[in-house]
Design a binder for these strands. Sequence first.
DNA 1: TTAACTCCTTTCAAAAATAAAGTCAAACGT
DNA 2: ACGTTTGACTTTATTTTTGAAAGGAGTTAA
Lengths: 135, 135
Amino acid sequence: MLDRTDFLILDELSKNSRITMKDLGEKVHLSGPAASARVIKLEERGVIEDYTIKINQAKMGYPVHAIVHIYTKNPNHQPYLSYIKKQNRYVVHNYKVSGESCYLLECRFPSNEELDEFLTGISNYVSYKLSIIIK
Amino acid sequence: MLDRTDFLILDELSKNSRITMKDLGEKVHLSGPAASARVIKLEERGVIEDYTIKINQAKMGYPVHAIVHIYTKNPNHQPYLSYIKKQNRYVVHNYKVSGESCYLLECRFPSNEELDEFLTGISNYVSYKLSIIIK
DNA sequence: TTAACTCCTTTCAAAAATAAAGTCAAACGT
DNA sequence: ACGTTTGACTTTATTTTTGAAAGGAGTTAA
């Protein structure tokens, strides 16, 4: 399905998604139009889902990075999920998981104060364990 | 420091990092060169760290997505860290965290068999708890 | 008032993207 | 064995985008 050249292309686009098709072509020993055609196919097949940027959240004012393990006491998760949705400025991911906990919440905060408020908020719906990411 | 227009630019680039400066300019009510100048500044300030793509890992053959909580028994983490480095084809992130566990490992596998092998491998160095991401 | 900045626009030459045409080789049916 | 189709590529030529340069408008400070 995917050949060596496709992998090289994905690798280059991962490193720099704004590379020109001409330069991408050179890197993978193809002409610009050929590289472009490959990329379009990768998009169509859904292998490339998105072109995006990595933002330095600390410089954006969100230096506190945390993982919160959620243990829902109530079988109805909706109140928790609604609350999370309302607090989405802090939430990076909310994974439903199998294992000990029910959800794994990755989030970012401007300060510990706001983290504290957030945790106070969710404790109305669920119990949790907190891990702060150090690096 | 960052104004409303910068936030709009970051938002648009997050959604599509390959947008042309001309189109980006239109979206944020600026000329192409003005948008381009803003973007260059955001890069220089380190707010934009990287232009990258989101790859559908399932279509790449890595459908199993897991978070592994690592508890190091030994105060010397090096053997664990070296092992992780060797297994980097599976590892998305290896966060050092404060809290109950020592590291939070986000990883992806082609199958449960390979997840099993990986876990067998790390159990030589550390103990762990596994969470499989369902969605 | 004037000078120095900042941030923008417009203009235009150079570079890149894209559409189109043509080449080549492998696969397939007759 | 021959012609046809298909897929992936290159080259060429047109269109579009980029990025440099020049200049204007608003702000601040001497």
